[in-house]
Computed example of a mutant assay.
Amino acid sequence: MEAITNDIHERKDRKRKMVVLSVLGIFIVLVFLISMNTGVIRLSPLEVIKTLFGSGTDKQNLVLFEFRLPRIVISLLIGAGLAISGCIMQGISRNELADPGILGINAGAGLMVMLFISFFPSTTSAPIYLLPVLALIGAGLTAAIICVLAYKKNEGFKPTGLLLTGIAVAAGISAAMIVLTLKLSPEKYQFVATWLAGSIWGSSWKFVFALLPWIVVLLPYVMYKAQVMNVLNLGESMATGLGASVTREQLKLLAAAVGLAASCVAVSGGIGFVGLIAPHLARKLVGAKHQMLLPITALVGALLVITADTLGRWIIQPSEIPTGIVVAVIGAPYFLYLLSRSKG
């Protein structure tokens, strides 16, 4: 009788998770369609449909295929990448406040990109494809510094120590970036200021193709490691008892998280809180098992960023609010809520 009851509960749980997956997919499609109609140059839904099927004017083709669609695709990729990166960091640190922005990973990637943009032109094709690599170097060095400072020989990575070390390193990098901005020309300063605010500045197909390989390679790898992340969540002693090489797996997953965050930051600027909010919302929807948590987290992150970008382009037309600011308006109060709850 108990086995039958458990089987019924499992079926209901699977059904609920599939409903959540379907609803998120529907919301993403709806916001995708709305985003294609949002901008200074208005395109009606009928004009968008005609343009998608090859019946639009040259102007409509230019607006939709060269300006809006690349930015929408990038928003989805960035949201998924940053969300999964945050989910990994929360998993390996066992700290619900962990996030690539809070831990300083985004700042490290941003510093390297900022150095490159400050001294080299960013309009040619080669630098565009180099940006994720440069961001990865900056984020990797930052992660290495944080790991060295936070790691205890007989204790491993303590959640509180990792978080505090990341915050301190991020503060130092931010100070260095402020000093660098003082030496920039007015044109580059304006660009860097916009980039730091979290504006999706890479809005062409070149940036899509620069970001896509990182997402395509790293996301499946992280999904493959879902069971390992479940084991790591049990704690270091339990995971070791089950045969997991805790430190090695943590470093592998951290490398994947750094790669995802760095490649996204290279084309999106300083968008924070996505990696903090998305895993929490996904965990409330489907629970803590990473086999379902990871894909739901990716969808929640994608939905969050594409919604924020669409709102940023719509609220004060013809100007726009950087996507990072819109996300921060949502994320900062949520972070304070989590912080107060963790203290409690």
Rank of each mutant, 00 (worst) to 15 (best):
A80S: 10
L338D: 01
T297F: 00
A266V: 04
G259S: 02
S237I: 15
G56I: 15
P70T: 02
T142G: 04
T123Y: 09
Y334M: 12
I178Y: 05
G272S: 06
G344P: 12
G110K: 03
Y334N: 07
D99E: 09
L212W: 00
M292I: 15
L24W: 09
A239F: 10
L46C: 11
L134I: 14
L164S: 04
I215G: 06
K225R: 12
L97D: 11
N106A: 08
T165K: 02
F32R: 00
E66C: 07
E249Q: 11
E187M: 09
L62V: 15
G269S: 12
I128T: 13
G91L: 00
H280F: 10
H280W: 07
M229G: 08
L281E: 14
V148Y: 09
S75C: 10
T57D: 00
A262W: 02
Y189S: 12
S203W: 05
M112E: 03
T240R: 05
V19A: 13
A278H: 12
L52M: 11
L285F: 05
T142L: 10
T123K: 04
T323P: 10
T160G: 10
L115N: 07
P186M: 10
L338W: 02
A98S: 07
L211E: 13
K188M: 07
I84E: 03
L115A: 11
S342H: 10
L294I: 06
V228L: 09
Q60W: 03
Y224L: 12
Y189V: 13
G104S: 04
R14P: 01
M18K: 02
L219S: 08
K188R: 09
V216W: 02
V19H: 05
L62G: 10
S263T: 04
R68N: 13
K12N: 14
I325H: 01
G161I: 15
V274T: 13
V73Q: 05
G91S: 05
F207M: 13
L136S: 03
A193T: 14
D58K: 03
G86D: 08
Y189N: 13
G301E: 09
E236S: 06
A3E: 15
A135L: 01
A135V: 03
A139M: 13
L293P: 10
F273H: 05
G104Q: 03
L103R: 03
S204C: 10
A168W: 09
V40T: 14
I41P: 09
R11C: 11
L218K: 00
V258P: 01
M112R: 00
N233R: 11
L336R: 01
I178F: 04
L52W: 04
L131D: 01
P220T: 08
A261S: 13
S319W: 07
K17S: 13
A255H: 02
R313Q: 14
R94E: 03
I321Q: 02
E2F: 07
K252A: 12
L242Q: 06
I145M: 13
R11A: 14
A170N: 14
I146H: 01
D309Y: 00
S199R: 02
M229Y: 05
L52K: 00
L254Y: 04
P127V: 12
I330D: 06
S319F: 13
A98V: 03
L180C: 06
F32H: 07
S340I: 15
Q190G: 12
G275T: 10
Y189Q: 12
A176Q: 09
L253T: 04
M36Q: 11
